[in-house]
């Protein structure tokens, strides 16, 4: 049976009071709690390093037992995907470059103009109730709180705590994470199937809808027309032509707010307006960061695609469930954009 000790009780009261004061100070974003964490981190790093080395064989064995089949299947799938995407990536890189040149020419912010720091993920969150990872770069590399974090696929999260040579990243799936995003609604496509009764192979074609009529004389969306016709008494000279894009095939954008919902549920996008122009939201439509002076991330960082549209009654817009392009369960290397949003900058 336990022995009652006044000293212990005093110690308990003191520690409980200290904890309450720490909680209060941390919620006020006091620098003293950061200092406590930094000092503890300096003391704890060597212990953690030794523990990592000693326990590595055990964790490797565990991963070998639990993930072997998944890894081999994933490897096979990835090889196929790489083969498919090698050709497409060349064309995509050219398009991205062109788009960034155009944005730069117009004085608009581009990702290419933002410096970045690469970092390795060195640890997951040691809690069941936080979605974060730790990286091996910190304030010494120019990383600050609020900076967006990407991997090769897309947006991963944002920096929430920075130490001299490490930082903590809050993942998009954390319920505390919110970001303004754009839904790029792809034009609706129609598929028609032609079946040959004489056992001919089935041919499937996908076509974008075209404008049916136009009341403007000489204007047909999607067509190419001469810009001017110079008619001389004896000859007709056509000057370089102008292509009018089909209005209905242009992507329409609408902004909303992306919110994380924890590891077991996909993030959602709220506050999408149900405008006539925006139309039905297509599954698979890309979600990109909206940008803007108050946004946590610069514009046009790929976040994910729409996997489900939950319609709501009345004027409340739909809620979109998002499939993230970045695999947050398997992060190894990330890129931190040296872009600090205004909202995350501390007042001098």
């Amino acid at each position: 049976m336990a022995v009652i000790s006044p000293q212990r009780r005093r110690a308990i009261a003191l520690l409980a009071l200290t904890s309450i004061i720490f909680v209060t100070l941390d919620l006020q974003q006091s620098g003293s709690t950061s200092a406590v964490r930094t000092v503890f981190g300096v003391l704890f790093r060597p212990v953690e390093g030794v523990a990592r080395v000693v326990t590595r064989p055990v964790s490797n064995a565990w991963n070998g037992i639990t993930n072997y089949n998944d890894v081999t299947a994933e490897n096979r799938l990835l090889r196929e995907k790489i083969a498919q995407q090698e050709g497409a990536s060349v064309a995509a890189a050219a398009s991205v470059r062109l788009s960034q040149e155009l944005l730069a020419l117009n004085g608009l912010p581009t990702l290419a103009g933002i410096n970045s720091v690469s970092a390795q993920v060195i640890g997951d969150s040691p809690s069941n109730f936080a979605q974060s990872v730790e990286i091996n770069q910190g304030s010494e590399s120019g990383i600050k709180v609020g900076m967006p974090v990407l991997n090769a696929a897309g947006l991963v999260g944002k920096v929430t705590k920075v130490f001299p040579n490490r930082a903590v990243i809050m993942l998009i799936t954390d319920p505390e994470y919110a970001l303004s995003v754009k839904v790029v609604n792809a034009p609706k496509t129609t598929a028609s199937t032609v079946a040959d009764p004489e056992a001919a192979p089935i041919e499937t074609t996908t076509t974008a809808p075209v404008a049916t009529t136009s009341k403007i004389p000489g204007f047909t969306p999607g067509s190419t027309v001469p810009t001017a016709m110079v008619t001389a008494p004896n000859a007709t000279v056509a000057v370089p032509s102008l292509t009018i894009p089909a209005g209905s095939s242009l992507a329409v954008r609408e902004t909303g707010v992306l919110e994380g919902r924890g590891p077991s549920r996909t993030p959602i996008v709220r506050f999408i307006d149900t405008e006539q122009r925006f139309g039905e939201i297509q599954l698979g439509s890309p979600i990109v960061s909206a940008g803007g002076s108050l946004s946590l991330a610069p514009p046009d960082i790929v976040v994910g695609t729409v996997t489900r549209v939950n319609k709501r009654l009345g004027t409340a817009g739909p809620v979109l469930e998002i499939g993230l392009v970045a695999d947050l369960t398997n992060l190894s290397f990330v890129r931190i954009l040296l872009y600090q949003p205004i909202t995350e900058q501390k007042a001098p």
């Binding site: 520690l15 409980a16 200290t18 904890s19 309450i20 004061i21 720490f22 909680v23 100070l25 941390d26 919620l27 709690t33 406590v36 964490r37 503890f40 981190g41 704890f44 969150s125 040691p126 809690s127 109730f129 936080a130 974060s132 929430t160 705590k161 903590v168 809050m170």
Partner: peptide, 17 residues
């Protein structure tokens, strides 16, 4: 708990309590 708090992202002192 206080030691654990130092590696968590939640407010310092919460896990201790």
């Amino acid at each position: 708990g206080l030691m654990y708090d130092c590696v968590l992202t939640t407010p310092l002192g919460l896990a201790a309590l």
